[in-house]
Amino acid sequence: MRIGVALIAGAMAFSMSAHADTKFVKEDGLVSYMITDSMAINKSLTGAAGDAANGRKLAINRKKGNCLACHVMPIAEQQFHGETAPSLYGVATRLSEGELRMQIVNAKVTNEDTMMPSFYRTTGYNRPDKKFIGKTILSAQEVEDVVAYLMTLDKDE
């Protein structure tokens, strides 16, 4: 599980913090964060709470989260839900807030082969379209909004 961190280290600046069991990630122009030994980012990226209603919109928006491309979600008004990833029904009962934040920020830390995009990462890409160079898919606050929305998904159906 930890291998992912070592492998992506080339693309980002990692440094060991005071505690041997946490990793510090800093990319130019982005908010830095700590990954704990249990693969979580426990602190809000912005220090502010997320807006769950906006998070839900971002999950639908094809140019933003587009989470529906791959996941089935409790968003009944949208006709098309993908099936290339696990359903997100009840995900808040399976993962902690910090684990959810890690999954959105950079899912490759827990699974280096995952198909899921890294929503808050700007380095280590091959042939990115020049419109997107140096940009994240979601802003730090948008990550928080999505996390807040996911925390409301506490029912299995």
């Binding site: 587009n66 529906l68 491309a69 839900h81 993908g82 290339t84 198909m115 995009p117 890409y125 990115p128």
Partner: peptide
């Protein structure tokens, strides 16, 4: 098998690992 683009996926993620599955409205 090379990941490309900001969404960071290879052809294999869609066409080898997920054929027969929908990606949003498209059947791969």
């Amino acid at each position: 098998y090379q990941r490309v683009g900001q969404l960071d996926m290879s052809c294999a993620h869609c066409h080898e690992d997920n054929y027969g599955n929908y990606i949003r409205a498209d059947m791969l």
